[in-house]
Amino acid sequence: MTLTGYFNRKNERVRHPFRVIMEKEMADHLTGWRFIILTAIMALTCLGSLYTALANMGQAVKPNDPEGTFFFLKLFTISDGTMPSFVVFISFLGPLLGIGLGFDAINSEHNRGTLSRILSQPIHRDYIINAKFAAALAVISAMLFALGMLVMGAGLVTLGIPPTAEEFIRMILFILLSIVYIAFWLNLSILFSVLFRQPATAALSAIAVWLFFSVFYPLIVNLITKGMEPSPAASPYQLVAFEQFRLTLLRVMPNQLFSEATTTLLMPSVRSLGPLTMEQMIGAVPGPLPLGQSVLLVWPQVTGLAAGTIVSFVISYILFMRREIRPR
């Protein structure tokens, strides 16, 4: 089949309205300045972190390191302190990407007067919000996979060592996890776009939430826990309970969940995300966890992130379905 033949057949096919909306939204994202800028930021991030990672690769590998076998994964995690690693970059800039693609999803349609026109076409109302979410998510996924693969490819060329199958799977899982994490912020900004009429208000509120979680919330947790800190002479049970409490408070933050999950996936030697007692450590052979065990360890974090994503989507879905549509 020739290429023109393919396009002719594509043109003659009747597409489902959901696909029509989704394809249009994707085209809007891909041709818009906003996405180009966000992609440029992400690409620069990649380059920067890749450069520091490659420059420090020599020092990173020590003899008898249990993670020595996972040489390739270090591409994503090491840094020399001047530039954050790839993982840290994603956890910081990912929200910006999600917010950037979602904050004007519904309200801009409303302000342009296109919402009532599109909704008077024979489609179900939820197609709009679903298609918008799906389109943004598809674009983000494509971008993250492309960037992830590029980092891997660059690593392959400069290091000359191919990743093992397990390393590859861990990286794919990391990318999937990043997509879920960004989807959370995407949904949050779509929720704000349903709530607020002005795109600027929606964007600011989403950024406020992002700043709150990445800057202020850890400070607040510190403040609270400082006052409750047990004395060093307290019983180990008290110390463990306190540490657990502190972690629980921190885990309200999506970025905390994300960074815990990614560190475990990309550093197989991490074997617990909470406090460990000496008894638990005795007799443990220092070595990396198998893939299955790492995934098991981060399962609660992944579930938490997915739940947050779903909750904010459900709220915006319900609000949008109940919203009275007026012509502008």
Partner: peptide, 15 residues
């Protein structure tokens, strides 16, 4: 909506 066309007061298009 399949059988009805609706033209609002200020019709909005994708600019």
């Amino acid at each position: 909506k399949k059988r009805t066309g609706y033209l609002p007061e200020e019709v909005g298009f994708y600019d």
